[in-house]
Amino acid sequence: MDKIDFKIKRREFFGKFFFVAVSVLFPGALKGKKDEKGHFVRNTLREVSWGMGIEIDKCIGCGRCADACKKENDVPPYPFFFRTWVERYIILEGGEVIVDSPNGGVNGFKPRAEERKIIKSFFVPKLCNHCDKPPCVQVCPVGATFKTNDGVILVDSKYCIGCRYCIQACPYGARFLHPETRTAEKCTFCYHRIVKGLVPVCVEVCPTQARIFGDTKGRASPLVRFMRMNKIRVLKPYLNTEPKVFYADLDMEVK
C-alpha cells in the first residue's frame, strides 16, 4: 500500500514539476492565449460577468425601474409584458401571505386595507436573473437565445421562431412573447447601455440605490462590495440555474 501511495505522489510531483518548469521556461505558454477569432480564451484574462445586486431593505416600491425599463426598451405598454417588475409582499398575522404587483408596479403602489395586522411587508424587484446555467438557452431549439461572453442572456429577435419553449423553461417568469414581432423577449441588462459604459436604466433611475449593477468578478466595485457586506440569496437556488441577480435580506416567502 505504501508503495502505491508513494507512486501516486511521485507522479503528482512530476506533474507539478513539469507545469512549473514549462511556465518558467516559456512564460507565454500557459497564459493569455487568444483563439483564432481574437477572443481571449477562458480563464486567461480577467473575464467580465455582469450581475446585479438588490437590497430589499432599500426598495421603496416606487416602481420607477419598471416604468423606465418600459420606456427605454420599448416594452409594449400593457400589463402583460415586463422586462422588470416590482412585487409587494404583505405578511399578515397568522402567516397569510398576500402578494401583488399591479401593472408590474409601473404606476406605483396604492395602500391596501387589510383586515388583520401586518406582521411585515416589503417590496421585491424582479427581472431576468441572467443565470450562469440558463434553462432558456438550453431549450432553445435554434440558437436564438444565448449567453454572451460577458455573461448576459440575449434573444436574437431576427432568428427566434416563436416556439415559446424558453418561456416555459424560465422558472422566474422573466420572458414574454412580443405581440408584434411574435418573438421571445426579456431583460438584456440594457446591453445597449452597458456596452457604452452606462448602467441599466432601472439602476440609473432607482432613487434609493436599491439596485446595484456591476461585474461579479471585478476586484473593487459597488456590486462586489455589496456581495461581501451582505448575506445574499438568489431565487430558487434548488433549480441550480445559478442566477446572477443577488438579493440581500430576501424573505423566505419570495419565490
Binding site: K37, K71, S157, H192, V201
Partner: peptide, 19 residues
C-alpha cells in the same frame, strides 16, 4: 462565438439609448 448569430450581439447592442 457560440451556437448563435454573432451579429445578433451587435444588433442588440446598437439599440438606441433613451435615458
Amino acid at each position: 462565438y457560440g451556437h448563435y448569430r454573432a451579429s445578433a450581439v451587435e444588433e442588440v447592442a446598437s439599440k438606441e439609448i433613451k435615458y
